[in-house]
Structure formats: structure tokens, C-alpha cells
Design a binder for these strands. Structure first.
Lengths: 192, 192
DNA sequence: ATCATTTCTTAATCAAGATTAAGTTTTTTA
DNA sequence: TAAAAAACTTAATCTTGATTAAGAAATGAT
């Protein structure tokens, strides 16, 4: 499948793969298209796959006690997204993963992933690097949440990812940045 | 050095090491004792090492614009702590790492780490797993910050890590949990 | 093109937690 | 063991952002 080449390209930005390794990898993954609002994972299910977003946008969210969605992560082009806790333990997940736009996804299930780690040593390095970046990004995000006001956070995000902001509804941005849609409206109202 | 055995033991909770690999690893690491309030890293320096806490407690913090410390992470027994951004890029760090108690540390510098990853393949897997856990913990922490009140956060932390709470000054806990020491006092005052 | 649904806005009231400031207790150091 | 420094407490006031509620605008489906 030609679409999955995007994954190979991404991996090879970090490590080299032999032709044989490329082949083994391609045989292990599952390419899938998913429509806006469809779910890859729903609360209560075991998260069986690690998902790589080739094109599009998905969100991972959790239901708050108040019954609202809290967006924990977005996944866009070239990002991996999964609930590692459920993925590793095979216990039901507390999270949901849903397409925000029609998206193209590569999925690898846990068993295949473990097998691939054994047969393709450099994949281990690739995920080490990917996870290190994800961890660092998460720590930085936490830092922004603590030490910037909601308004600063919005402006910061807005200037850092202006094109992404265009792609998602505002109430999702609010959910991701940790405040209410009403407050986001208020901030935007101020400007003009 | 017998103290460094704790690191080997920790690694072998996740992957197997041959005697030869153990030896190579031990030759690459640096054991060091550090007194309370001494720094492993100070803002502006390049973070040259990844630190493993054998015994004791360190904190990683960043100076807020208001001139206060925001604690980003604690490192206790069997935790790795470093600023991966600075460590990888060799650019000056924005963070500080300081001992909260007299501590015993194993340090590995970047160059050695890269060499060890090449000579000990299972080390790659070990760090992949470690980073996956760190990432997951960070995501969960973010979730708690968003969806619990300061008071809930305190009680949650307090019941989850009662012994740890005893070890650090309260103002550090407040800094880690994202509120003021005064507010922490207020919460505690309520009880009795 | 029209109806229904989803998303966004505005404004009034409210609450959690910050700030300030002063005083008390505990720990460290000489 | 006394003085100094660090850590903790209390209380009054203030601010940011939540909540509620209603209406307007945009988007999607038929």
C-alpha cells in the first residue's frame, strides 16, 4: 500500500531500515480510513492498537465527572496516539479516540508490535526517540498550564500553531487548553 | 561499586543483561553523592547527563516569570531525571535539578549513553519502556490538574503517596501540585 | 433552499484560589 | 543554645475564569 509509505518515511527520519525490514513492517500494519466522528477507541474497550496518523486529525479525550469531554491529546499527521496503559495491560481504557476530520490511519496491534520489536531492532530505537519527544512535549505542556493564564495559553497556542487552530472547532481547543468555550469567546471578543 | 547495583537491578526488572553487558554498563556510569540543596543542573547550563536516583530525592524545577520555583518533577529511588531537550540538543537548559535530601545518584553523559545504546541493544528497550511510563504518568498528571480542584489534587496525592508527602517541605508539594503554600495551609487547616 | 443540528457569542452572577501582610513555629547554623 | 533563616499559618481582599442562560450564526443533511 502506497499510503503506508508515509510511516516508513517517518521512521527513516530517525533510523535506517533494510528492504527486508520494511517488508516485515508493512506486513504487520493495518491501513484504515476513518470518517469524521468515528471512533478508533471507546471508553471501556481495551486499546488493542497503537495508531499512526498519516493524514487528518484525531483527538484522545476522557469523560469528566461533569459529563464533559477533556481532550488529552490531538494526533495529526505523523503522530502516534494510543492509551499505553490499556495497550500494555490489556485492561479497559478510560479514554476515547475519535476522528476530528476524515483521516487515514495505520494501526499496529500489541502482539504484532512486540513481534516487530524483536525482529526489527531499530524500531526499538525509533519508539524510544518518539516517546522521549512525547514525554518532553507533555512536560512542556504541563508547564504552560501551570505558569500561564488561560488567555496567555490561548495566544501562545494560537501563534505557535495558527494553521492547526483553523482545523478544529473552538470548543475542542478550549477543552485541550483547559478552559470553557465561553471563556474562549470572551478572549476573542476582546481583540476587535 | 556496590551502590550502582541498584541500577542494574532496576534495568533487569525489564530486560536481561549478560555479564559482559553489565560490565560495559558499569564502566560507563558515574556514581556520585550529593548533599541537600546542591544542584545537578542549573538553568543556563547544558544538561550533559541523564541521572538515576539510587537513594534520596531530587526535584526538577523552573523559575517562573514571577521569580518563584515551579516543580516540574520529583525524582526518587529508581527514577531517571534529566532535561531531555537540553540533553539531546546540547543547548542550555531552562531547568534546575536540585537535591531535596542527601542523595545517591548515577549519572550517564550523552556520549556514553549513545555508545551504550549501540553496544547494549536491550538498553534501548529498557529506555523505551521507561519513557513510555514517564509519558503515561505525565499525561495522567495533566488530567488530574485539569479535572480536579486544588483540594482534590492534594487529597489524592496525599493518600496515594503518604510517605513521600512526609519527606518534602509543604511549599514544594504546593509548587508541584500547582497552587500556593498559603492555600495548602488553608486546606490542612480545615480538617481539624 | 430549508430545516435541524452544531457551534459560537454575550452578559450577569458566582466561586476557587491568588495576593498581601503579619505573625508563629520549626529548623539550621554559628 | 541563641540568633538567624526557613517553613508554615491565618485572615482580609481581590481576580481569573466557571456557571448559567439565552440568543445568534454557521454548517450539514434532505
Amino acid at each position: 500500500m502506497v499510503e503506508v509509505k508515509a510511516l516508513l518515511a517517518h521512521i527513516q527520519r530517525f533510523v535506517a531500515l533494510s528492504n527486508e525490514e520494511e517488508k516485515v513492517l508493512l506486513e504487520g500494519v493495518r491501513y484504515q480510513k476513518i470518517k469524521r466522528k468515528e471512533h478508533l477507541l471507546q471508553e471501556g474497550q481495551v486499546c488493542t492498537d497503537n495508531y499512526f496518523v498519516i493524514r487528518g486529525c484525531v483527538r484522545m479525550y476522557i469523560q469528566t465527572p461533569a459529563g464533559e469531554d477533556r481532550i488529552v491529546q490531538f494526533g495529526i499527521d505523523n503522530w502516534w496516539i494510543t492509551d499505553y496503559t490499556s495497550f500494555d495491560s490489556k485492561k479497559p481504557s478510560s479514554f476515547n479516540i475519535q476522528a476530528v476530520e476524515d483521516s487515514e490511519i495505520v494501526a499496529i496491534d500489541k502482539q504484532t508490535m512486540d513481534r516487530l520489536f524483536n525482529s526489527i531492532p531499530s524500531l526499538e530505537r525509533y519508539f524510544r526517540v518518539i516517546l522521549q519527544r512525547a514525554f518532553t512535549a507533555s512536560v512542556m505542556r504541563m508547564h504552560y498550564i501551570f505558569d500561564q493564564s488561560a488567555e496567555e495559553r490561548y495566544h501562545h497556542f494560537n501563534t505557535s500553531y495558527p494553521d492547526f487552530v483553523q482545523r478544529v472547532p473552538q470548543y475542542m481547543l478550549a477543552s485541550y487548553l483547559g478552559f470553557t468555550p465561553e471563556f474562549l469567546s470572551k478572549i476573542r471578543g476582546k481583540k476587535s
